[in-house]
Design a protein around this nucleic acid. Structure first.
Lengths: 189, 189
DNA sequence: GATTTCATTTGACATATATCACAAAATCAT
DNA sequence: ATGATTTTGTGATATATGTCAAATGAAATC
């Protein structure tokens, strides 16, 4: 088993039993990818069987709205990349693209999910992934509704400073739901 | 077992085996509630061990922002009511209140969740609930980001006409992220 | 059925942000 | 290094939506 798989397995089995046998079973459907900046993992409107885990690097997700890119989230080290849409046979709503040269784990969710019905450890492992994802989505919604643009930016500065160092402001602006001009003006204060 | 539990059990076990024994095990932690309009299920900033399933009626969820109620979602028949925050020992961010006299199933999530580690059917059942919830959140985010106010309203008219008949426009407006005055003007067209 | 309470609509004005246009700075590639 | 591309910043104006205030309409309560 590749040692690079460990952070992923550990991250989602903190309070769960995960035997060596089960780990091995999961690892069959994992693989390491080394990809360059601008590489596209998932294309808008296409179907995909994979989710990804960021070992090193940065990924962004966006969709096109009237020809303009709307960035929806960014993933850095130890974050997951993917969308539940993809694992329910719907085409992806978003394009997911590398912002930096990155090392990722590709996870064949389509093949792992059926194992949930027969292996209780895998069921709990997958559940941990989805639950963390749902919590992330709840946070995202609360964050976007509850705050005005300035406070959203300040929260980002406070909670995710790495994001501001590594992701262009143009992307950050559309993530915050404002134009890059407006973000530039907010920063001037 | 109360016959009213059936819709809930069936809804989340469509593609899952769920033995009579497991059903009985789950039902220990379910109970039927008949409550009146305006009854508060969950209070903002308080901790709760329960999620709910709407058999009949309507529920809304909102938080206070500068003293103004911001409505975040509405649940009708066969919808779940709750937040993952509550099941990770965080206080609720939102108040959940009945909009109509309702019949609900109260689900003691806190007591059911530990059973996931020993009962694979329960693990998959709970996973189905969380996965549907995460898909709901993905939709909600996409809907709120992708559309302007008019299109959001028209989508609601098209996809959830019952909501407009049963939920006051004041609540709908803040759900759409606009004031009731603005919604009123949009409707005038 | 009358009265109070709540929900919706309309008007006048203020404000934040978008849009368009362009300039400056930083980064990338040859 | 040097030119080309990308990223960020600034100005002038337009526009959608918010805010405050008041009137109308509907629903609940006694």
């Amino acid at each position: 088993m590749d040692i690079l798989f460990q952070p992923f397995l550990n991250h989602f089995s903190k309070n769960l039993p995960l035997s060596d046998g089960t780990k091995a079973e999961i690892c069959i459907y994992l693989s390491i990818l080394n990809l360059n900046k601008k590489h596209v993992l998932i294309n808008e409107n296409q179907r995909h069987d994979f989710a990804y885990f960021v070992i090193k690097g940065a990924v962004r997700s966006f969709y096109l709205k009237d020809g303009i890119e709307v960035n929806t989230w960014f993933a850095l080290e130890n974050d997951m990349v993917g969308s539940l849409q993809n694992f329910n046979d719907n085409p992806s709503r978003e394009t997911m693209e590398l912002v930096e040269n990155s090392t990722l784990i590709a996870i064949n969710i389509k093949k792992i999910k059926p194992l949930m019905l027969s292996n209780i450890q895998i069921a709990n492992f997958i559940n941990a992934i989805i639950e963390e994802y749902a919590l992330f989505l709840e946070d995202k919604i609360y964050f976007s509704q509850m705050m005005n643009s300035i406070d959203k930016y300040l929260t980002l500065v406070d909670k995710q400073p790495q994001l501001l160092q590594r992701i262009p402001l143009t992307y950050i602006a559309s993530f915050l739901g404002i134009t890059r001009e407006t973000l530039s003006r907010l920063r001037a204060k």
